[in-house]
Nucleic acid binder design. Structure first.
Lengths: 157, 157
DNA sequence: GTCGCTGCAAAGTCTTTGCAGAGAG
DNA sequence: CTCTCTGCAAAGACTTTGCAGCGAC
């Protein structure tokens, strides 16, 4: 199993750590560590995108064709991981949920409505403020998404 | 609750204005102004909540039982309104989308991933910061959307 | 060996589509 | 009149569940 970090930033944790967290979680709940659960975690870890259950299932069929992992197992494992906060799910307005590992870093998007260019950014002040607001309103904040729409400097010319 | 407010009930557009916008939109696209489309717009306007297609359909059956508006028409009209940016939709999980009129005042959303409850808020500090960031990165900001996902106080119990 | 896990297929949900008659322009 | 809309029901898309055998512990 590769012991690598992604090139995102220092908030990303290593796979070995993630895997042992997962095993600890399973043990604590008298659940079993199966090869299907392992490859699902690994595939989520190695993906830079938000995955739908279907796209994750597809990836598994490509990378581990011998396992013949069923879509039902993908759904069941994602629910398990989400319930234990190891992955978060987002719905972006389209149909269905998308999942990503909670261990990855977060960023927001500036989207140019003219050329479609997307700039990523993270702003600590906004991040802090979001936590504050969630707390004020009694929410246990899990994740957030923010998009700013506008016209980029190039397109303003 | 310092700078956070959930007071969002001021309408930016009156219903008459909204209705004539809707009629203009229909005319422009050679579509017809039907009683079903009207009551759907009106019901959205008079609701302070985010409505699912199903809950909107329910409201229509209560308020306009004689029309017997079908659920398919609700879906079709919501799609039409969304495509033309008169309503916006939010997704909060596997249980479908919720819709609201775009004509209402700007606000952001806190979405409970357990029960789907949506709380609205406006925070000046974040609004200001978004403008600042857009400016810093050379964007002419037009709009933005922000969703915080978490677990509401009720569901934490 | 026990008991949870898995794949499969069937069953649920939610949403869209085909169609023939109704109705707006 | 013409051509779009509508309600209905069937079809589709997505997700969950029941079950019998498999496999981790």
């Amino acid at each position: 199993m590769p012991n690598v970090t992604t090139d995102f930033n220092d908030r990303t944790i290593e796979y070995e750590q993630l895997l042992s967290d997962f095993k600890a979680l399973l043990k604590k709940n008298s659940l079993k560590f199966t090869i299907q659960r392992e490859v699902i975690l690994e595939t989520l870890y190695n993906s830079d995108e938000h995955l739908t259950p279907e796209s994750l299932h597809h990836l598994l069929q490509e990378k581990f064709p011998d396992l013949k992992t069923g879509i039902a197992t993908v759904y069941r494992t994602l629910s398990l991981l989400e319930d234990s906060s190891m992955v978060t799910s987002l719905s972006f307005g389209a149909q269905g949920k998308k999942y990503e590992l909670g261990a990855k870093n977060h960023h927001d998007h500036l989207i140019c409505t003219e050329c479609g260019n997307i700039t990523e950014f993270v702003d600590e002040q906004i991040e802090d403020r979001q936590h504050f607001i969630a707390k004020e309103l009694g929410f246990l904040m899990k994740d957030h998404s923010m998009q700013i729409y506008g016209i980029c400097s190039n397109c303003q010319k």
